[in-house]
């Protein structure tokens, strides 16, 4: 919390929300309008989830909510009472995930801002469709924009990671 926030918060407008983030129970005291994205970044310091458009257009803020991909800029903290959230941090608790490794290997990571959202979205895709074709990958990733336009490499990275998972199983 920044030092200039000494004034007591207005408890009348604050809501207490209990949820699970990356398998840890957390309690947030937030105003109604606080998005899950801002809650993760500003209250919990989980800054892996990125804020770009904050309008549901770019996918930089993609997280899992109860196992389902959502744009965290379009969910309010207060809506997540009792739910469980997994962020990019939760996907890489034991070092880089296979997807993250392949994003790096393929050179998909340029400025990097879109990458956490890309990786979470790709994780969601491979969980539901482990054998996704290049077309299915493009369709599933259409909501994740990359201003550095590394799209070819992103698709490649997902294909290689998908191949690694199929080999293992």
């Amino acid at each position: 919390m920044s030092t200039n926030e000494v004034a007591p918060t207005n408890h009348l407008s604050d809501h207490q929300v209990t949820l699970e983030v990356n398998e840890q129970a957390v309690v947030l005291n937030v105003p109604a309008h606080r998005t899950l994205l801002d809650g993760l970044r500003d209250e919990l310091c989980l800054t892996g989830t990125k804020k770009c458009c904050a309008d549901g257009e770019c996918g930089a803020c993609t997280v899992f909510l109860d196992g389902v991909l959502v744009n965290s800029c379009l969910v309010l903290c207060v809506e997540t009472e009792g739910q469980s959230v997994t962020t990019i941090e939760g996907l890489s608790t034991n070092g880089l995930s296979d997807l993250q490794e392949e994003f790096l290997n393929s050179g998909a990571v340029q400025c990097g801002v879109c990458i956490p959202g890309q990786v979470v979205a790709a994780e969601g895709l491979l969980r539901t469709n482990p054998h996704a074709s290049a077309t299915e990958i493009r369709d599933a990733m259409a909501g994740n924009l990359c201003r550095c336009a590394g799209y070819e490499r992103i698709v490649q990275a997902i294909q290689v990671a998908a191949g690694r998972r199929v080999e293992i199983t």
């Binding site: 996918g59 389902v68 991909l69 959502v70 744009n71 379009l74 259409a142 909501g143």
Partner: peptide, 9 residues
């Protein structure tokens, strides 16, 4: 409609 994440919600 929108994207995967939008359609989920």
């Amino acid at each position: 409609v929108g994207s995967v994440a939008i359609r989920n919600r």
